[in-house]
Amino acid sequence: MRALRVALASAVATVGLALATSAGGAGARPAWPVTVRAANGAITIAHQPTRIMSLSPTATEMLYAIGAGSQVTAVDKYSNYPAGTPRTSLDGYSLNAEAVARYRPDLIILAYDPPALAAQLATLHIPVIYDPAAPTLAVAYHQYLGLGEATGHLAGARAEVARLRVRVAAIVRTAPHVPAGTTYYYELDPTYYTVTSATFVGQLLSMLGLHSIADAGGTHVSGGYPQLTAESILQANPSIILLADHGCCQATPASVAARPGWSALSAVAAGRIYVVSDSLASRWGPRVTLLLQAVASDLRRAFG
């Protein structure tokens, strides 16, 4: 979570760079070598990579979605989607360059850049694309295009982006209309860490007409991931509660309702507490539509 927030901060700073990537890459057939821009600057890739190593579960999903799956030879231990990825015991949060080099990759994708790792890998002459957590859908789309260009699947990347745009628009269009001022409390862990509307998840939820109760303190407080006090949650009295901490911490609608004092909340009284899959919610890849779809159907149950 913290790592995510750190990554996010640097991602925000590099949105501008990412925007430039897609504009430059648009239209041209990849002719090797190619140069792509990512959060770690311009990366030149000499040949079409055939031994890709993804240490980012989201990038893994993206690579398979754009048709580069057959070039992926190693992924980190959290890359559990799609089924059949070449999983290793590597952990994207604690890496050492030698363990990575052992797999002889010709392209590495990171979502978290441990201090000096990228620099160390650079001395091995392995190109590294650093795609940290996307703060917006637009940034996620640009990451798609960057990966497409780097792997020789630009067309696949474009098609996937187009599919996502259409799908997101359709979900938003058919989602139930929520009353104006509908608020949510999105729980990241049982100590009341949450998201503001400035985060990736927050923006998806905004598309459905929802507002975070954490926005009251400023949307950029704590990088968009503040820890709320229990009493401010109670006083804000959110219209719905979304639990993204079921997988990690076994939070359930029943356990939330049983928290001392929480029974006074209208979301609890009306049973508007929903579990959100943590593995969907923490990624910004092809399955964001599933997350959006799931929340839309929760809203249908809540307000339909």
Binding site: M1, A3, Y93, S94, P190, T191, Y192, Q227, A230, C248
Partner: peptide, 25 residues
Amino acid sequence: QQQHAADLQPVYSWILGSLSVATWS
């Protein structure tokens, strides 16, 4: 902690200390 980086946050917030979820129990 290093081997379970994904669970870092709860450990980290416990180490920092907090009364954020205090209850009568």
